[in-house]
Computed example of a mutant assay.
Amino acid sequence: MEPLELTQEWDKTFPQSDKVEHKKITFHNRYGITLAADLYKPKNTQGHLAAIAVSGPYGAVKEQVSGRYAQTLAERGFLTIAFDPSYYGESGGTPRYLTSPEISTEDFSAAVDYLTSRTDVDSERIGILGICGWGGFALNAAANDPRIKATVTSTMYDMSRVNANGYFDAMSADDRYKLREQLNAQRTEDYRDDSYARDGGVLDPVTDDTPQFVKEYHDYYKTERGYHRRSPNSNEGITKTSVLSFINMPLLTYISEIRSAVLMIHGEKAHSRYFSEDAYKRLTGSNKELLIIPGANHVDLYDNLNVIPFDKIDGFFKNALK
């Protein structure tokens, strides 16, 4: 594995719990990329534990939302890891700030690889949890990896659908063609400049006529509430040309074949709610559930502990991973 320089100080956007042990770990995916993660383990536990790998949101790092989820679930008895995706955060991979439907999905299965190697983990009781764009990658991974026994998605985005079709599928084929022209012109420019232009992250500053959901993103990523120096969304964003692969390679193709348990959570007021509702309709079997949180918006499920249904998530994983 490539050597990584990992920050040892506590630099999360949430306070450290005294109920869990925390340490930095690394693992690699099958593309040879080394990933960095925070491991959370309940104190004073013995034997083989159920384990959960957590990542997301899209453009966030493990010091933000995924770490909060992972630490909270560790307080409830699970061994958890919150990992930085390939190409950003403290994880390896070049070029930096790239995303990919294949590699971003692969990172979840690579996390499962790592967890199965641990002597304190029951390899038959491993689940995953994906937030925002990584909710879609989590479903994609669950469809392809039967080692994943339970999946939770929170405020899920289908990154292929939104990039190829726009919000609420408003883009036409002509719109998509123009987008391809722009992105491939960007490829030409990037190659000539030996660089990778980035999309700018979350809009800053916002104005009165900025869409409400963008204001909500700003309130998280660009303020003390959720800003982190390694987060693409908090800073200069993802590479612009990452969009191309999502347009051309749809996620969620085989989610109807997921045989393990799935819990999907979304806010009633979230602009993205339709992603979860439409994906849920495609799931089969009796062990699938969609939970809509009254009054909640997309970003409420990032860090609002009065809104995130941790009791429900805890009960779901304990039942599915028993």
Rank of each mutant, 00 (worst) to 15 (best):
G59M: 06
T241V: 12
Q71M: 14
Q46H: 15
E106F: 11
A51K: 03
L263S: 05
G135C: 09
P95C: 08
A185E: 14
I255D: 01
Y114N: 09
N297E: 04
L98N: 07
L6R: 01
Y217T: 01
R180Q: 13
R229G: 09
R187A: 08
D190H: 10
F275I: 11
E102L: 12
Q8P: 14
D145R: 10
R30D: 13
G47N: 13
N304G: 07
G47H: 07
Y69M: 00
A53P: 12
Y40Q: 08
I52S: 09
Y157C: 13
N184C: 10
S231D: 11
T80K: 00
Y87F: 11
A110Y: 09
D84M: 02
W10S: 15
L6D: 10
A142M: 02
L73K: 01
G136A: 06
K41L: 06
H48K: 15
I128P: 01
S286F: 14
L305D: 10
D145H: 04
T239C: 11
P101S: 07
K222N: 04
D199K: 05
K322M: 15
N248D: 15
D120T: 06
Q46L: 14
A111Y: 00
I313D: 02
A141L: 06
A142L: 04
S55L: 02
I81K: 04
A197D: 13
T7S: 12
D300W: 03
I308S: 03
N184M: 10
G200A: 07
S66R: 04
K240W: 01
T239N: 08
E236M: 07
G89Y: 03
G295H: 14
A74F: 04
T239R: 13
L39I: 07
A296T: 06
T80W: 00
F137R: 03
W134P: 01
G67W: 03
E21H: 05
L183S: 09
H48N: 15
K43P: 01
I313S: 00
Y40W: 15
N44T: 00
T94S: 09
F275L: 09
I265W: 06
T241F: 12
M1E: 10
E63L: 12
I293C: 05
F78A: 01
E224C: 14
G315D: 15
L39P: 02
I81V: 07
G130W: 02
L139S: 05
G133T: 04
V112A: 05
P95W: 02
A185N: 13
F310R: 05
K215L: 01
Y280T: 14
L79R: 10
S260K: 08
Q182R: 15
N306V: 04
I292L: 08
K318W: 03
A170D: 15
A141N: 01
G295V: 08
L6W: 02
D113N: 15
R176K: 12
V243R: 06
